[in-house]
Design a binder for these strands. Structure first.
Lengths: 345, 345
DNA sequence: CCAATCACCTAAATCGATTTAGGAAATTTT
DNA sequence: AAAATTTCCTAAATCGATTTAGGTGATTGG
């Protein structure tokens, strides 16, 4: 069934030369080794005649380079991560790297297992959106010599190169926008576990903003395993008790979806009854009715900076050595219809 | 910087035994080779003491198995493909395979380049949603001994195992739903290039359905590089000329988005002015206003069947040899608000 | 005619694992 | 005590490439 692939040796044998010669020629090092032009031609011709495909596994083993990097996120089918993955893929491809993508489902043990797996596969570096609460495991990985860049989520950790959005500021901007639009009682919809830095930072930003104008913070924490049902129950309860917020800041795209479902199900109009702004912009928000306001993350830029840092680590260049270890990139407020408060009250 | 990894040899040396011994023990073949229990313990202890990580590259080279498969689609950031990727990832992981994901941007030359790359990397199989018009290239790949399964899009080709949705039937069902809802003049929004089987099949289904009830087919072909602008211009023109369709069947998720944008921009109410149904369901459709009706593809099932067939090819089992080479899986109509015609006219 | 130079190529080690055939020492059998 | 087994382990080939130090034969120089 699976016939043996053509190897360097096969070419060498069928030409009666050494495989060193063949390797040199095929790697374009013929000139610097003074290999006769005519020999080059013969090798090249034979290689294409036999349809030679270099075995990258062997090459990688010998060179100690796999030309592969890993991207580990919680769920590649989440649109935020799939956009990020695509951006990383393009950068990697241009740099001659393949990309292995893994999803952790927010499970720390799965994350650890996948990281070990990638390490065993000799990936040259890893870009990771970690679900871990501390960075012991990751520091160990890094000390093992695996270039590592954290993306999206930061850990409380001085050692690891990290690239994130400015989530705190995003939380602030979004909240201020609600306040500026006339909302008096904005509810922040967060998600557990609480150690996920993106969410906690956004909550901080929210809290700062409301506190500053004398509004008491109001944060609901949604367990990530049961987002839709929990949010629906929450909205239902608040409505029944006549304690609805006048606006909601949904702090990531999964709670935004849940909130939209719940509001629709309970017949609550956006923005007439409840204003809504989302952390994370989604293509579909633009043409929804109402169009959803959002705090947009610079996905392409995140990928770019993270990938750049990873390459610096791989190439051992000290370019980023003197920069701050953690970069926070600016986010962008997109005002649409879902935060347009109708009447002043 | 990058210290050398601990190898089998290091363990062997530091224990004064052969590396064959170490390999056998670590692979659990100690018993069948009559290796002393005490020796096993020493090896295991030393391996964990030195924090040994097996080099999968070396292992793969020796075994002739990379435990990696490739998934090649047009764009991993498209939600359809990212859901598919996630499903494949889970299956692959359970089977002990890593997944390399590549995007082709619908470019045939890029697809060919990526396939070659994957082949050089010795992936054990490839799941491919191809942008190619014919299958010469792919047949060659397969004949090279690379297990290959086409997914999502089929080619006009008798040789390649293929797993797709029943797109023709989906086109029919969606169109019939429009007709049954009282629409008289449904426009099918297709996309070029025309050789993409998903779209051409859906158009066929649409055409069958309208023809059957005596309605003339009306298909607009949108060039895939300029979907949003083209669709907007089209809707604008039709509106200006007072030739608007009473409903639209958007034949994939990119034109659906474009149609929604265009309709909103031109102030056309869905479904009051124009009904809309989408091929491909998207999570966001459920809670949009109006909620969008859709023909849903069985993504998980597609992944499952394709992966199963790939494994059969890899394992050389003839399980699927007698089945039809192409499977078409049933799709599902989801009726929501966007196809609710108000008044009979 | 011998040595130096040049042009061209090869041998062999190496990366890190797996696997098979077989060997040495200890034990049992007769 | 010699022969036959057992028990436990090793040598060496192998996967397919890369790379370095060196070798061979022809040409040139003196």
């Amino acid at each position: 069934m699976k016939q043996k692939n053509v190897s360097l040796n096969d070419i060498a044998k069928s030409l009666g030369v050494s495989r060193a010669l063949v390797s040199l020629v095929l790697n374009g090092k013929a000139a610097e080794h003074g290999i006769a032009e005519s020999t080059c031609q013969r090798v090249l011709a034979k290689a294409s005649e036999l349809n030679y495909k270099p075995n990258q596994l062997a090459r990688s083993l010998r060179l100690g380079r796999s030309f592969t990097i890993g991207l580990v996120v919680s769920d590649i089918s989440n649109i935020f991560y799939s956009k990020l993955a695509r951006a990383v893929e393009d950068l990697a491809e241009r740099a001659g790297f393949s990309l292995v993508i893994c999803s952790t489902d927010e499970q720390v043990d799965k994350e650890q297992k996948l990281l070990r797996l990638l390490q065993n596969r000799q990936v040259e570096g890893i870009i990771l959106s970690s679900s871990q609460a501390d960075c012991d495991d990751l520091t160990r990985l890094k000390n093992d010599g695996v270039p590592l860049v954290l993306i999206d989520r930061k850990l409380d950790c001085k050692q690891l190169s990290t690239v994130v959005s400015n989530n705190r500021l995003g939380g602030e901007i979004g909240t201020k926008h609600l306040i500026d639009s006339g909302y008096k009682r904005p509810l922040a919809l967060a998600i557990t576990p609480a150690h996920i830095s993106t969410i906690s930072e956004r909550v901080k930003g929210y809290t700062n903003a409301v506190t500053e104008v004398g509004i008491a913070p109001w944060v609901a924490e949604v367990p990530f395993e049961e987002v839709p049902s929990y949010v629906e129950a929450l909205i239902g309860r608040l409505k029944a008790e006549n304690r609805l917020p006048d606006s909601i800041f949904a702090l990531n795209n999964s709670v935004t979806s849940a909130a939209l479902v719940a509001l629709k199900k309970h017949g609550l109009d956006v923005p007439a009854s409840v204003g809504l702004i989302s952390f994370d912009d989604i293509p579909y928000f633009e043409f929804m009715n109402p169009a959803i306001s959002a705090v947009e993350q610079p996905i392409a830029k995140l990928a770019e900076v993270a990938f750049g840092r990873l390459m610096d680590q791989i190439n051992g260049s000290s370019a980023t050595a003197y920069e701050s270890l953690t970069v926070e990139l600016p986010v962008n407020l997109i005002v649409r219809e879902s935060t347009t408060k109708q009447q002043p009250n």
